[in-house]
Write a protein that binds this DNA or RNA. Structure first.
Length: 412
RNA sequence: GGACAGGUGGCGGAGUGGUUAAACGCACCAGACUGUAAAUCUGGCGCUCCUUGCGGGCUACGGAGGUUCGAACCCUCCCCUGUCAACCA
């Protein structure tokens, strides 16, 4: 899809880059820089920062990464910045306490994980990966103090989060105030032309502008992207809320998770997590509203598109087949995990067995699931938690817990 | 260092000596209804053991001790958070 995009006019490039963005500060500046870039051949330096502690990328992150890709498509330099120094602070949220310091090895390992994932979207040949400890450590304590002198407490406290916590009498650790400064200085060190971030990053991105100005550099253009809601459809997608779709989720999982989102949020996923043009999405939406298209079909299409993006078209097609088999026709998935167990004379109670097989979090939990009718053994619903399973002779058992947990146990 | 307020389950938030594994709400899980959607309704929501019983054991209300037949609740010390005060005495 990157073919021929570098021959677009500046107007066309602007349209391409605007897609999905919440805010661009300022459009005129971006346009000007694109124009100059076209004239001089100097590529824009586009930066986005990532947390070194959480290298598991989910669909929410891809909204930003896709935007990076758009710049890449236009021939600009994209810098994937791993905030290994910033990671010591942790972006202030009021919830996060000081994070544990990662070792060099852990950071390297996480970086590798990142690479594997982002190269599903970004071009491995041209993407620049950098670490902010590179210049932060070099800065030294004295340099850091000097850096801090360029910003005032009042300016930092403008940040909504700080203001809120202050008024609610909740603590703010001193080092949290430094986070925006460090992130802003990254833009100085990298001489960034553009910084991308989620809407929640706006303050930090703007600090970058101020600091660059203070250092006599042209202030970066700030572009914010929406935060994609998680599978619950309400809160932003995040690992800690367990409402995320990881791009490394296996095809069946990924397909199922997409299918579980609400119809209302489906269009947003289409818009932010796929490359399908907005016009097409709008057409579909109207068709659904007019009753000419079934929302479930549209959602299956979404799930298939997303799975294909991070796996393969074949994997996506078979995930769809499996989904239809299991849920539309009440059948069984093809690839049920099988556990082999040696025969023994011991009769094991079902709750304990389910816990041991990993089908329930604990024995107590398994008992509850059984009582609530969530468990079937070889297709028969079991509601008595005292049922035991015979291990004595070879045989095969098929467990189903809830709608989506299956396991086959073979006794030999 | 001082005065005052506060620290309860994933989160919010009741409870202030005795059926309190801890009200209620959110989140979460399961069931029903469906399109594995949403909404709605129902049940559940620390761990473990067994003879599954309004059963036994263990763990839990910032931490450590103590008082008591019995403590989240009272006392002591400690840790943490916030508010006020702080300098011209």
């Amino acid at each position: 899809m990157s073919d021929g995009l570098d021959s677009l006019t500046v107007e066309e490039q602007m349209t391409y880059l605007r897609k999905g963005a919440v805010e661009i500060i300022h459009e005129a500046e971006l346009e000007e820089r694109l124009r100059r870039s076209a004239a001089t051949g100097r590529k824009l330096r586009v930066k986005a920062g990532f947390d070194p502690t959480a290298p598991d990328i989910h669909l929410g992150h891809t909204v930003l990464i896709r935007k990076m890709k758009h710049f890449q498509d236009l021939g600009h330099t994209v810098i994937f910045l791993i905030g290994d120094f910033t990671g010591l602070i942790g972006d202030p949220s009021g919830r996060t306490l000081t994070r544990k310091q990662l070792t060099r090895e852990e950071i390297e390992a996480n970086a590798e994980t990142y690479k594997k994932q982002i190269y599903k979207i970004l071009d491995p040949e041209t993407t620049v990966i950098d670490f902010n400890s590179r210049w932060m450590l070099e800065l030294g304590t004295d340099g850091f103090v000097t850096l801090c002198s360029r910003y005032t407490v009042r300016q930092i406290l403008e940040r909504d989060d700080f203001e809120k916590r202050l008024s609610e009498n909740r603590p703010i650790a001193l080092h949290e105030l430094l986070y925006p400064i460090v992130q802003g200085y990254d833009s100085v060190a990298l001489e960034a032309d553009v910084e991308l971030g989620g809407t929640d990053q706006k303050f930090n991105l703007l600090v970058g502008r101020e600091l660059q100005r203070s250092y006599g550099l042209p202030p970066q253009i700030v572009m914010t992207m929406p935060l994609l809601e998680g599978t619950d459809g309400v809160q932003k997608m995040s690992k800690s809320l367990d409402n995320y779709i990881g791009i490394y989720d296996d095809p069946a999982d990924m397909f199922g998770k997409v299918m579980s989102i609400s119809d209302a949020i489906m269009y947003r996923y289409y818009e932010l997590a796929t490359d399908i043009p907005v016009r097409t999405i709008e057409t579909w939406r109207r068709e659904v509203e007019a009753g000419r298209r079934h929302p479930m079909e549209l959602k299956k299409g979404l799930a298939e598109t997303i799975v294909a993006d991070y796996h393969t078209a074949e994997a996506a097609a078979s995930a769809r087949d499996a989904f239809e088999t299991v849920f539309a026709r009440g059948g069984l998935p093809e690839d049920i995990e099988t556990r082999e167990v040696a025969a023994s004379a011991v009769r094991v109670r079902l709750p304990k067995l389910l816990a041991e097989l990993g089908l329930a979090a604990s024995v107590a939990e398994a008992g509850r699931l059984i009582k609530s009718g969530a468990v079937t053994l070889n297709g028969d619903r079991v509601t008595d938690p005292t049922v035991t399973v015979d291990h004595a002779s070879p045989g095969e058992y098929l467990f189903r817990v809830g709608k989506r947990r299956f396991m086959r146990m073979v006794v030999r």
